[in-house]
């Protein structure tokens, strides 16, 4: 165990938590507001990544700039999927809802396979991708720093919308009681549509960031969907406010294990599964 690597592990873990939080908060929004466990969340992320890739290849758009295009497109895709499929299963058993979202994920994955093929696609000339600022033996990468800042701003903006705006109050109201919110005049379906669109938008922006970090494939969303589920479970299903702290716990735990344990990077998946297991056992033990 080389403790001299600890500062780098802490910095890398905290910076990674931003993207984790961004992806997880979208998933939590769908679960918390609409009550849908969206297994296609990672595919929104993947679509965002491929759109950023395509904008770069076709028009030379810098990926950061492409967020301005990708975000509204993903909102529209999310809203369209909600209107055409999700809203019809809101009162169906949970298993049906999960199967539907799982199917949507498979459809999106295979559409991507048809359009972009199965090869990983690299956004070639991004001049800042490999840049890092050296601070006392610790490297702060521009890309992880940028994705952390963007994620914090977006998650903060979402919290502000939920806490301070009429739309946010409407979302919280339908989350608490769908029927009651409808009785007092809220258009529940419209609130759900906006929430699902926002969820897809946040995942899509996360996807743009991953298009810079790695090479997108049709299955690139899977890893982040798993992380997002771990974070959502850790925060408590539907608890949007707990997402940031849960993301920091997951990202730091992974980074510390990967750095301080021999072959620790190979244990990354074990770390978040252990966190899910530990959380569920703790919750069941706490509740008599």
């Amino acid at each position: 165990m080389d403790l001299t690597l600890l500062p780098q592990a802490l910095v890398s873990g905290v910076l990674a938590s931003g993207l984790y939080a961004l992806v997880a908060v979208g998933l939590a929004l769908a679960i918390g507001v609409i009550g849908i466990v969206n297994f296609a969340h990672g595919e929104f992320f993947m679509v965002g990544a491929f759109l950023a890739y395509q904008l770069f290849v076709s028009f030379g758009f810098d990926p950061l700039l492409s967020i301005l295009f990708v975000a509204p497109v993903l909102f529209v895709i999310g809203a369209a999927i909600y209107s055409s499929t999700i809203r019809f299963v809101l009162k169906a058993p949970e298993l049906n809802q999960m199967l539907l979202t799982f199917g949507i994920g498979i459809v999106l994955q295979n559409l991507a396979l048809m359009v972009w093929g199965g090869d990983p696609r690299s956004i070639g000339g991004v001049p800042y991708r490999a840049m890092g600022i050296q601070l006392g033996g610790v490297s702060v990468g521009l890309v992880p720093l940028g994705s952390f800042v963007v994620s914090v701003l977006l998650v903060g903006a979402l919290y502000w919308v939920l806490a301070r705006t009429p739309l946010g109050r409407a979302m919280r109201a339908v989350a608490q009681n769908r029927v009651g919110a409808g009785l007092v005049g809220l258009e529940v379906n419209r609130v759900y549509l906006v929430a699902f669109g926002l969820s897809a938008l946040l995942a899509g922006i996360g996807g743009v960031m991953i298009a810079v970090i790695q090479s997108p494939t049709p299955t690139v969303g899977l890893a982040y969907t798993l992380k997002a589920f771990a974070i959502v479970v850790l925060a408590g299903l539907g608890n949007i406010r707990g997402i940031v702290s849960a993301a920091i716990v997951v990202a730091l735990a992974e980074s510390l294990v990967a750095t301080l344990v021999p072959n620790g990077d190979a244990l990354r998946n074990a770390v978040f599964f252990a966190l899910i297991l530990g959380t569920l056992v703790y919750r069941s033990w706490r509740r008599p």
Partner: peptide
């Protein structure tokens, strides 16, 4: 295999 492509910990080693 489900990794997120964050290899900084390993590369630090």
């Amino acid at each position: 295999a489900g990794g997120t492509g964050d290899f900084r910990a390993t590369l630090s080693k």
